[in-house]
Simulated assay, not measured.
Amino acid sequence: MIRLENVEKVYRTSSIETLALNNINLNVKKGEFVSIMGPSGCGKSTLLNIMGLLDAPSKGYIEIDGSRVEQYTDKNLAHLRNQKLGFIFQSFHLINDLSVIDNVEIPLLYRNSSAKERKELAQEALEKVGLSNRMKHFPKQLSGGQKQRVAIARAIVGKPEIILADEPTGNLDSVMGNEILNILQKLNEGGATIVMVTHDDAMAKKTHRLIRLFDGTQVV
């Protein structure tokens, strides 16, 4: 489903060169729930961004569903992200001026879906995360756990095959964190392939496989 071959990522300034990822090789199979762990600054988010086509490797290549993407145009990459990938961020990235259902509909705007279809799909996604009674609320009226559930609904509204989650429980207490993990597990059981960055050993142990990074290198 996602394959990285000899991936390296280097960030350069006029005076400094930083090796963020070094010779990463990994293969995430369809239907897997994989967690990525490592100390702060080890390259976890960089790796997730490359897997999500938000950043390009300096060397090596990435395949999504069997297709190598290094020759894709920005337009083709954006289309692939919209069709196959769903993103969940630690800081939610909700728009405060929009209602919950309008926030969830956002990815569908780029598909030229009709207003009726957008509303139906958004309602369906909110029901999956247990927030059908909060559709007309605004983010400022929600708890942290509720905001993250809205973010998950937004990530799954387009029914992506792959969900990439960057510290989805990092801003939540243990009770809310477990609720979010339970939702992700149900999505995985429903067929979604999930890659989750986490600092929480207990969370990681509940996924199928753990990938550890240290100083940008995959620890075997």
Rank of each mutant, 00 (worst) to 15 (best):
N76I: 15
F214N: 07
L131R: 02
E105G: 12
L109R: 00
S14D: 11
T193L: 10
S58W: 01
A115Q: 14
E117F: 05
I64N: 04
S35Q: 02
G158H: 10
T73D: 15
N96A: 13
M37I: 12
K30N: 10
I183G: 08
E63W: 10
V7M: 05
N171A: 11
K119E: 15
H137G: 05
T198H: 11
K186S: 13
L48R: 03
L80R: 06
M51Y: 06
M176A: 07
R118S: 09
N27L: 14
H137D: 04
D201S: 15
V100G: 11
E32N: 07
Q146C: 13
R134S: 14
Y61Q: 14
G216P: 00
L26R: 10
L4E: 05
S45Q: 05
V104E: 12
T18L: 13
L85H: 00
I88S: 05
L26E: 11
E8S: 12
E179P: 03
S132A: 12
G86A: 05
V175P: 02
H137V: 08
Y61V: 12
L181K: 08
L213E: 04
L172A: 09
R68E: 14
E127K: 05
G41S: 03
G177I: 09
Y11S: 12
N188P: 05
S58N: 01
Q146F: 14
K30Y: 00
L4C: 01
V197H: 06
N178Q: 11
N96W: 12
S99K: 06
H137C: 09
R154N: 11
L4H: 04
T46D: 07
L48E: 03
R68H: 14
E17W: 06
K84C: 07
G43W: 08
D200V: 12
L48A: 05
L108S: 10
I106N: 14
S143T: 13
E8P: 01
K29P: 07
I106M: 14
P160V: 13
R81W: 09
M176Y: 01
L126R: 10
Q148H: 11
M203R: 09
Q185L: 09
T46Q: 00
N178Y: 01
N22I: 08
L77H: 10
Q146D: 08
E167S: 06
S113Y: 15
A155T: 07
T217D: 04
I2P: 05
R209T: 08
S143R: 08
T198N: 06
A204G: 06
H199K: 13
Q83D: 09
I162S: 02
L53M: 09
N23G: 09
K128F: 15
G60P: 04
G41L: 10
F214I: 06
E32H: 07
N178T: 10
P160E: 14
F214W: 09
R149F: 14
L213R: 01
D65C: 00
A151M: 02
V104K: 06
L94V: 07
D215N: 11
L94M: 02
N22L: 04
N103P: 04
D102C: 07
A192Y: 13
V175A: 00
I152V: 08
S58K: 07
R149D: 04
G31R: 01
